[in-house]
Design a protein around this nucleic acid. Structure first.
Length: 526
RNA sequence: UGCGCCGUGGAGCAGCGGUUAGCUCGCCAGGCUCAUAACCUGGAGGUCGUAGGUUCGAUCCCUACCGGCGCAACCA
């Protein structure tokens, strides 16, 4: 069995996840679910990035120990991810022992290789934050620290450790050339290659005098600085430094799913670190796009930001609608590799047309007829050619295409294809064959049509499984399909092979003899 | 400034060298009644940012310009 190790970026715990962070996790989750269906042994890792100066600060404000604070935040994050049905297998917190051990081992290895030297870092230091500020932050604060406008910034020089990133320039370029798929999508690849070709500077990887963080093993007065520590979560979660067998079984990772803003760290610094340590490099890095917020009143499209007050929290949408609606919106409307837009107006629009009027209604009309005309029991289903709903479609080719799309993170076109080639033709089939008329004139013919339609639900269930796990399960359990193949064993290939139980039984939840609505319509303006 | 992305009917997106430029929403007109007033069919609406160029032929390739946006080392 092939193993498949995928990761998402670890998040800072100082603010709660918004729809942009959730976008990344959903995209990765679809991949994880898809790979499991394909029979891979999947290890899907997520986590929080806790070794930042803001953690002890924020904890102090709340009157908590840093440890208690990060644990509480990790709990909140996991609650959100679970509410969105993100099927992560492990959640690492970088304040955990296993991460500290691995990081210290790693930095020691790189040090022993001669890739770490002492240098002087100069910059604007804020005594309030106890940290250096970037030029951008200084600019934003108008020469002051944005968080501490009353405290003057001081120009400080500090001796700390540097990683010889520049020494890896040639090797990195060779790696990009030899592995054209390393950076995806393609457009990000060009960006990185030109960046590395242009200039590569060594990076500071430690800071002095911080109490929270991972001490540098060969100089305990210093702690490991952000990226050098954060990137290592992918390895320490897989057992690096603690469990060599487990690590060997997992490493290298198959893909890091990350935001386009941090592709450079994952495509430049990270492979160089691994080269230095003599470890294999992650096979692929996928830099997804961002979600922007469309302001309904002005029509402006803006970045999600706290200062603009346009942040939308996933839980808002999950509670008002459902996790399925949330997943559907982003997966169908925002191409994973590119950018997308969110507005409540459009959310309602998409929900009503695709889910309520589309999937939900299709499900409802099929089941209603089975119940109404046959009392939910259709005999000899397995003797019917159940592919008549899609006469022109080569289902084997369709499924092969979908596998290709989903495997390459092309979710939006995959979902469009499902509508065009499965759900829409099914609705058309009903109009053309008129089973509701056949019910009065030719019951056998009516039964055959409905058996065909049951087959639509069965294959739809399978093809929707990575995207909408709950809806897919509801579709599958609407009839006794489990008798043919248990739900947790279905794969995409099964969608192309009609397989119905001898006697088809409606097993769906009903309300007063009718199927329960899957996606109740949203009243516009609510 | 450097690098990158984008500009296609009212809105949001596909297409990326070759028959009448597709799709979703919205709008109009029919049909149907199994269904969550859902579904099906048809229609109106685009000189594919602008100007050149390459080509037998360009929305799709090249150049310039205009407009919008992103990134530029710790920002999802």
């Amino acid at each position: 069995m092939a193993r498949f190790f995928l990761t998402t970026a670890i998040d800072y715990p100082n603010s709660r996840p918004h729809i942009g962070t959730a976008f990344e996790k959903i995209g990765a989750d679809v991949q994880a679910r898809f790979r499991r269906m394909e029979g891979d042994q999947v290890f899907f890792l997520m986590g929080n990035d806790e070794n930042t100066v803001k953690v002890p600060q924020r904890a102090r404000e709340l009157g908590l120990e840093p440890r208690a604070y990060v644990d509480r935040m990790a709990g909140e994050f996991k609650d959100v991810w679970r509410a969105l049905d993100i099927s992560f297998d492990d959640f690492i917190q970088t304040s955990e022992e296993r991460h500290h051990i691995g990081c210290q081992k790693f930095i020691q290895v790189v040090h022993d290789r001669g890739d770490i030297y002492t240098g002087v870092y100069k910059g604007h230091y804020c005594n309030g934050c106890e940290t250096f500020k970037t030029e951008k932050e200084v600019e934003e604060g108008g020469g002051k620290c944005p968080n501490h406008p009353s405290t003057a910034l001081v120009w400080l020089e500090e001796e700390n450790y540097y990683f010889k990133l520049s020494a890896y320039r040639e090797r990195l370029l060779a790696h990009y050339a030899a592995n054209p798929d390393f950076i995806q999508p393609e457009s990000r690849r060009n960006e990185i290659v030109t960046l590395v070709e242009a200039e590569l500077r060594d990076v500071a990887i430690s800071r002095k005098g911080l109490s929270w963080g991972i001490p540098v093993p060969f100089d305990p007065a210093q702690t490991i600085y952000v990226w050098f520590d954060a990137l290592l979560n992918y390895m320490t979660a897989a057992g690096y430094g603690a469990d060599p067998d487990r690590f060997a079984a997992h490493w290298p990772a198959d893909v890091h799913v990350i935001g386009k803003d941090i592709t450079r760290f994952h495509c430049v610094l990270w492979p160089a670190m691994l080269m230095s340590a003599g470890l294999p490099i992650t096979k692929r890095v996928f830099g997804h796009g961002f979600v922007y917020r469309k302001n309904e009143a002005t029509g402006e499209v803006q970045k999600l930001s706290k200062s603009l007050g346009n942040v939308v929290e996933p839980m808002d949408l999950v509670e008002r609608f459902s996790s399925e609606a949330f997943r559907y919106y982003f997966l169908s409307q925002c191409p994973f590799g590119g950018d997308g837009e969110f507005s409540f107006e459009r959310f309602a629009d998409v929900y009503n047309s695709a889910l309520a009027n589309g999937l939900g209604n299709l499900y409802s009309r099929i089941l209603s007829m089975c119940l109404k005309y046959f009392g939910g029991k259709l005999e000899a289903a397995n003797t019917v050619d159940s592919r008549r709903w899609c006469p022109g479609t080569d289902t084997v080719a369709l499924v092969a295409e979908l596998r290709g799309l989903v495997g390459h993170f092309e979710y939006t076109p995959a979902i469009q294809k499902l509508h065009r080639e499965v759900f829409d033709p099914a609705n058309r089939y009903i109009t053309e064959t008129e089973p509701f008329k056949l019910a009065k004139t030719n019951l056998d013919a009516c039964r055959e049509v409905l058996i065909n339609l049951a087959e639509v639900l069965r294959s739809s269930a399978i093809l929707l499984k990575p995207f909408l796990p709950r809806t897919a399960l509801t579709f599958y359990r609407a009839f006794n399909f489990d008798e043919i193949k248990p739900w947790d064993q279905v794969s995409f290939a099964d969608a192309a092979q009609p397989a119905l139980p001898p006697v088809l039984l409606v097993t769906a939840a009903t309300q007063a003899g009718k199927p329960a609505p899957l996606f109740p319509k949203i009243e516009v303006g609510s």
